[in-house]
Design a protein around this nucleic acid. Structure first.
Lengths: 228, 228
DNA sequence: CGGGGGCTTGAGGCCACTCAACGATAGTGG
DNA sequence: CCACTATCGTTGAGTGGCCTCAAGCCCCCG
């Protein structure tokens, strides 16, 4: 289930040391371990002690909270290169699951905290990352509290387009239910919104794959995305 | 949100130096200015350069985002002792307004950043505050995306009860519309939810003042607050 | 080929929104 | 002191957008 990966591929990804403003040489004690998770498996659970910090190498991850009766809110999707699992308290505040088969790099939380104490650069990057997460959450509050279903789906498409488009086609790793739980909707409502955008000629699907989406009219799509 | 709730009204507020882990003596260059804002006036606007960081001395503040057509989402209320206006980028991401007549302390952003570079303690407190803001936003996403109107109002009451109750009665500084825009509802829906809780004997109003609320059955109220 | 997961689409229902009326309170000025 | 006005809050009636429930299609994979 949980396989250990040793091979360092021809990685185009900036690694975590770089992300935190460190060189491996300057921190010989810190090791970059790697793990793989099969589609659908849990990486960590809410309220578990936060021992590690993660970076997506390949694949995609969803972070979510559950209500007691099963209602789910996905707070963020983590794609290739993203760092997640960053907590200040000792516990994780989300459950993290692999959406598809996913490989991650991980580093001990304690090592990073140690580094932050002596290296102001590391501390600053830590703060900067947390602030980016905060900014995303703030924007998402506006979406969840005040936008219509169509506006939410449009915002989602523009976000994903920016984050994972290779060439002009984007391949979504997540299913309609994941999108719905991210946007505070039902999967049917998401599907209807996508159909409507398809019908309007704003987007198209590549072949019969409903997760491969091409934005045909970026201007019109952007006009449906209300700015604050 | 930020954890500086002044439980003893006679005690002076912990000031910003304390909050950031500094003594005034250790930072003679930093000055704590004070300013007052009349009810309804803007403290700073979204996308304005973030020159200062603020702490509520007395009064209350709302931080919100607007869509182009006027829809509003309040991201947080700032009460006595709370620090707000903390940004990592150079611009404010919310508009901040005084809900009632409000006095604030303020400190130059640049001085704080300078202090954070040399003092790891300050840097750590800065990160801790940002993380608290993030945690609040994450919880609020769940509320906005997945909770019913009654659940939202209950959560609001419990949050306010924890943050501003002196004795057993809480005096809300904000109007129904503010509450609605915080919870992603309309003011009528908020009013109906409060009426329902009143009718159920869960809460009462002090005299004819609809902003002075007494929680009569804390257990029953808590049972309506779904936990994740 | 059968089964199951993912997606779409339709029909109907419900919760929150919209629109409106009304009461209470506070402030203003005569 | 009494209008007069504005603001705030409650409540009712009706609407509508999203949800619920259900059927059916497509594709993948055994």
């Amino acid at each position: 289930m949980l396989s250990y990966v040793n091979t360092d591929p021809a990685a185009p990804l900036p690694n975590m040391f770089g992300a935190f403003g460190m060189t491996s040489a300057s921190n010989p004690m810190m090791t970059l371990n790697e793990f793989s998770y099969k589609k659908g498996t849990e990486i960590y659970g809410e309220k578990e002690p936060a021992a590690y910090i993660y970076q997506v190498k390949t694949g995609a991850v969803r972070s979510y909270k559950l209500l007691t009766d099963g209602r789910r809110q996905i707070g963020a999707f983590h794609l290739a290169g993203d760092i997640f699992g960053l907590e200040n308290g000792s516990e994780h505040r989300f459950t993290a699951e692999a959406i598809v088969d996913t490989a991650v790099r991980l580093v001990k939380r304690s090592s990073l905290e140690l580094a932050a104490q002596s290296d102001a650069m590391v501390a600053r990057n830590l703060l900067s990352m947390t602030t980016n997460n905060l900014q995303h959450a703030e924007d998402h509050m506006l979406l969840l509290g005040r936008k219509t279903s169509l506006e939410r789906v449009v915002a989602f498409l523009l976000e994903m387009d920016k984050r994972l488009t290779a060439a002009s086609v984007m391949t979504l790793p997540m299913c309609r239910r994941d999108i719905a739980d991210y946007l505070g909707l039902t999967l049917e409502t998401v599907s209807r919104a996508l159909s409507r955008l398809h019908q309007l000629g704003i987007l198209g699907f590549l072949g019969n794959n409903q997760r491969q989406i091409v934005i045909l009219d970026r201007l019109q799509l952007a006009s449906l995305d209300l700015r604050d």
